[in-house]
Amino acid sequence: MRISDLLPSVLIGAVASARSMTPMAALAGAHLAHRRTPGRLWLLGKPLFTAGALAMGAGELYGDKMKSAPDRTVFLGLLARVMSAGIAGAALAPRGRERAGAAVAVGTAVPMAYLTLSARKRAMAEIGQTRSGLIEDALIVAAGVAVVWWGVARDR
């Protein structure tokens, strides 16, 4: 296996650093489009998981704009990133390398959560919470969709 085989897992970890539920929502969207992930992810076969992932992804986008939204680096925020990155990283890894995919995704998501938070705080100071959040949403959702679609296309 080449290290580049785990690149989709690394990239989805970067996505999870900024929006914890976007990787799961992007995977759910790919599942609804009848795309299979290279790594095994039995959760995707469950309609409740798919619906929940999409709902949580949308809810996170809304909740992030609230003044009371906690920083992504609080314990529960990091825990959500670890779980989402791990699941998505495993799903985008080559079959049989799911654990490695999960590990590199989590290893990317956690430190990058601090970097993306720092960037967001700078953007908030410049253009405000809502506008900076909407821009971050657009970038991260687009990146999440692109990474998942590229990851599932590589398996074909």
Rank of each mutant, 00 (worst) to 15 (best):
A25W: 11
A26V: 01
L27H: 00
L27R: 00
A28R: 02
L32P: 02
L32R: 14
H34R: 12
T37S: 12
T37Q: 03
P38I: 04
L43V: 07
L43C: 02
G45F: 04
G45C: 06
G45A: 07
K46D: 12
P47R: 04
G52E: 09
A55M: 04
A58Y: 04
G59A: 08
G59W: 10
E60S: 06
E60K: 02
E60N: 05
L61D: 08
L61N: 13
G63T: 09
K65E: 11
K65N: 11
A69K: 02
A69Y: 14
D71T: 12
R72G: 14
T73W: 05
T73R: 05
T73V: 15
T73C: 13
V74K: 10
L78Y: 07
V82M: 12
V82E: 11
V82K: 08
S84W: 06
A85S: 06
G86H: 09
G86A: 10
I87F: 14
A88D: 13
A88Q: 10
A90H: 05
A90R: 03
A91V: 07
A93D: 02
P94C: 10
P94V: 08
P94T: 09
R95T: 10
G96H: 11
G96F: 13
R97V: 00
R97P: 00
R97K: 08
R97L: 08
R99S: 15
R99N: 15
R99L: 15
R99P: 08
V104I: 11
T108D: 05
A109M: 09
P111K: 08
M112T: 12
Y114N: 06
L117V: 06
L117A: 12
S118L: 10
S118W: 14
A119S: 05
K121V: 12
K121D: 14
R122E: 12
T130F: 09
R131S: 06
R131K: 13
S132I: 03
S132M: 08
S132W: 05
L134K: 03
L134T: 06
I135L: 15
A138Y: 05
A138S: 13
I140H: 05
V141D: 07
G144R: 01
G144M: 03
V145R: 00
V147D: 01
V147M: 01
V148Q: 01
V148H: 01
V148L: 04
W149V: 00
